Simulated assay, not measured.
Amino acid sequence: MAEPAQGMRTTAYRVIKGAWGIAVDLTAEATLGAAPPGCAERVSDRVWLDASPVLSHPPADRTGRRITPEEAVWLRHGVALAAPAVEVLAAPRHTTITVHRVRFPETDYQPEGLAAAVLAWTEAEFGLPPRPVEVRFDRSANRYVYGW
């Protein structure tokens, strides 16, 4: 039987280094279980990602945004960065991270911000030390560049 790790938590990720910034509010929940979950994407041996709530978020619901499968790849990337540490903390159980909601203004957004937001969420949820993420603003491209 699966058990919630802490309950739902919202993390606000912000970066402003140029003419505009990236702002993502991400609400997620971690569930621990003895067996792999029935429906989630495997990120590592014992860490799983369930992005289905944000992939199917109703467009008329203004409490969050629906993201595309291409954007969800960035959620997986952020979880993958934290997965080794999460596995150590939760061993021998399986951890499923379910992303329930994402909010971002269309003008202050790049999909890479989803990876940074879910990484910050895992750090808060599991008490992990912050992982420095190099972010610089490329003025000529008018976008942020992440050094993962």
Rank of each mutant, 00 (worst) to 15 (best):
G38Y: 02
T31C: 13
W74F: 14
W148E: 14
R62G: 00
A83S: 00
A90K: 00
V133M: 10
T95Y: 08
T10Q: 14
P69H: 07
R14E: 09
M8K: 08
A80N: 14
A2Y: 02
T98E: 14
G18A: 12
G147L: 13
E125W: 11
H100M: 00
V88Q: 13
H94D: 02
P36W: 04
E112H: 11
F126H: 14
D61G: 11
P84R: 00
G21T: 04
K17D: 13
E134N: 13
L128S: 13
F126P: 11
H100A: 09
P129I: 03
L81R: 13
S56H: 06
A12G: 02
E3P: 01
A124H: 15
G7W: 03
H57F: 15
P36I: 04
G18D: 09
G127N: 01
P59R: 04
T107P: 00
E3Q: 14
P59L: 05
H57V: 00
A23V: 01
G33W: 02
T98A: 12
A12F: 07
E106W: 01
G113M: 08
L75T: 01
A91S: 14
A30S: 15
A5D: 13
Y146F: 14
V135L: 09
R101W: 02
T122M: 07
E70R: 06
A85D: 12
I67E: 06
F126C: 12
S44C: 10
V145C: 07
A5G: 10
P53F: 11
R76V: 05
P59H: 00
V79A: 10
C39A: 13
A116Q: 07
L55H: 09
P105Q: 06
A30T: 03
W148R: 07
E87V: 04
R101L: 00
P105E: 11
R101K: 05
D108Y: 00
E41L: 06
Y109L: 08
E41K: 02
F126V: 08
L75P: 06
G113N: 05
L55C: 09
L55K: 04
A124S: 14
R139L: 01
F137M: 03
S140V: 03
T31H: 13
R139A: 07
I67G: 03
V118D: 02
A91I: 03
K17T: 05
P69C: 08
Y146A: 01
I16A: 08
P69K: 12
G113W: 05
I22K: 04
Y13S: 10
A28F: 01
D50P: 14
V54Q: 09
F126E: 03
L128M: 07
P111G: 11
